[in-house]
Design a protein around this nucleic acid. Structure first.
Length: 152
DNA sequence: GCCAACGTTGGC
DNA sequence: GCCAACGTTGGC
């Protein structure tokens, strides 16, 4: 089993929104970055654990846990001209973009702020904290995952 | 709203 | 294949 961190803007889709989804599941559409796509398409497996991170908001930080419940399949929003995620280079025959489904696992009693993550030497290698890291999906080591859970 | 740090695009 | 210009991300 692997561990991941996925960013979402809570104004658009928060951990509460995931909780309130029917079946508490959501398909992770709209990723248009090759590195993030490759992680989803090639490496994310059913049962992997995901740190659900709130970005671009008042208190950025880890808000809870989700689980990968469906492995990568084509992101149909990429060939929908009406979608803001439309990419004319992606077609049903030759899809360029992929997504996974995740399921709500738990909401932390508190959001663990980015600021706090930065204070711990144990997390100095965390990809999220590396300079200029703008990936919306990134791998997290088991040690980092466990440590972040211990901060709740 | 600012801006640093990226990723992508496209001309050459 | 290089690289300048542009667009985006995301913390502050």
């Amino acid at each position: 089993m692997q561990y991941w961190l996925m960013k979402s803007e809570p104004d658009t889709f928060s951990i509460d929104d995931l909780f309130n989804r029917k079946g508490k599941k959501e398909h992770w559409d709209g990723v248009r970055n090759y590195q993030a796509r490759n992680f989803m398409r090639d490496e994310m497996k059913k049962g992997d654990q995901v740190l659900f991170y709130h970005s671009s908001c008042k208190v950025p930080g880890v808000a809870g846990i989700a689980t990968v419940c469906k492995e990568a399949y084509p992101d149909h929003t990429s060939w929908d001209p009406k979608s803001s995620y439309y990419d004319p280079k992606s077609t049903p025959d030759n899809p360029r973009w992929f997504m996974v489904d995740i399921k709500f696992s738990k909401k932390f009693k508190r959001v663990i702020p980015l600021k706090e993550l930065k204070e711990h030497d144990e997390l100095s290698e965390l990809k999220l904290l590396q300079k200029g890291c703008r990936l919306s999906i990134m791998p997290v080591s088991k040690e980092e995952y466990d440590f972040i859970n211990s901060l709740v």
